[in-house]
Design a protein around this nucleic acid. Structure first.
Lengths: 221, 221
DNA sequence: ACCTGAACACCGTTCAAGT
DNA sequence: ACCTGAACACCGTTCAAGT
């Protein structure tokens, strides 16, 4: 009589159960349901029907898993606009794609965006494409990196803002002490409900437009 | 014969050893030397010559400690410029102060900036001051919150960038594959060494100037 | 080579016991 | 009221043992 749920016994399986791709897929799934605090090697192993030590055959440690997750996200960012339009138009869809890739996995940002990028990753290749677009647009060589970093800072900060609850700026019981800010919040809420967008989207689009316009103005002057 | 290091015995001390202020002071000290991963309740207790459970008389849990730390930082941000100059001038020193408060405790950002702000904190009062300055500058009520959020997104993102190692954008061995990006990095490095600043500072100042200029342009048009 | 099982040194938090 | 001591349920990681 066979048991139905035949747990794997110790010992090498005839054919490997795991690989890096499968583990990263599962990692995003676990992160999505468990959140950053609940993202554990045990939970990851369980979703793969495996014991935690098995993961260490493919990744050196948990940080190594997270690094691979970020690499996956970076490869999803859409750079196509830089091939089709000048930088000041191209950065807008790129920035939206960048932010939305993270917004697709809201729980990822705290975990992924704040871990220092150690050395080289595939994402470096993306920067070459952007650099070329900026150079063709007339940017001096020494300002190309600062421009990219400034844009990314805004995007990452906006992504962090997007993961916060919508009412993060709600003064709540403090309203009497901050009347103008409370009124501004209500006025924004009216726009938000009318437009069917999130408050974070409003701030992102406004800031992105201003940042690009300001960069353009600096370039022509 | 008395032992020199007389450890405290169990039982209530004649006069309380701890208070919230002392604990928060110690928390920043521990965070600074131990980093975000090494920031533990045990480490915090040790620095206060106390056992971990004692902390729970003053804070409900570790997150509560972190929230108090952020409140402390928020109170250090300098808002004085908003009383003395129009918004487009005032935001610059405010943004620098905001970012430098976090830069003073580089290890804090990952821990503090990414934890969602739950409900009300003292920082809400700051927003009233900024809102008033924006309104006096002619901003429509419904755009005041988005403007503040866009600025904060850029500042927080820049603070995150500032904690990363200076060579975070260094293509290193990838240089042959990304020649223009590598050259741009070298050109930036020359400016950085000549000016005696960090690469992150360059990007922050460039982005801040552009963002403010872009916001101004939107307002007058 | 690639998995399990057992073990180690942690962690945050709870709670009774002591003064 | 405010501390310690002991305990609980975790965590990441290592490593021998099994196939």
């Amino acid at each position: 009589m066979e048991t139905v749920s035949s747990a794997r016994k110790a010992g090498r399986p005839r054919e490997a159960v795991l690989n890096r791709e499968r583990i990263i897929d599962a990692a995003f799934a676990v992160l999505e349901v468990a959140g950053p605090d609940g993202f554990t090697m045990k939970g990851l192993a369980e979703r793969l029907s495996v014991k935690p030590p098995a993961l260490y055959n493919y990744f050196r440690n948990k940080n190594d898993v997270i690094k691979a997750m970020r690499g996956r996200l970076a490869s999803r960012i859409d750079l196509a606009s830089f091939e089709a339009a000048p930088w000041c138009e191209a950065v807008v869809p790129w920035a939206r794609s960048y932010r939305s890739v993270f917004a697709r996995h809201p729980e990822s940002i705290a975990l992924l965006a704040t871990m220092p990028v150690s050395g080289q990753e595939d994402s470096v290749l993306n920067y070459e494409v952007i650099s070329r677009s900026l150079q063709e647009g007339g940017w001096p060589l020494e300002e190309i990196v600062p421009v990219i970093v400034a844009l990314e800072s805004f995007i990452i900060g906006s992504a962090l803002d997007a993961i916060a609850p919508d009412n993060i700026m709600d003064p709540a019981d403090y309203s009497p002490q901050v009347p103008l800010f409370a009124a501004a919040g209500l006025a924004q809420a009216a726009v938000v409900t009318a437009g069917g967008v999130r408050p974070a989207d409003l701030a992102f689009e406004l800031g992105l437009g201003a940042l690009v316009a300001g960069l353009r103005a600096r370039l022509v002057s």
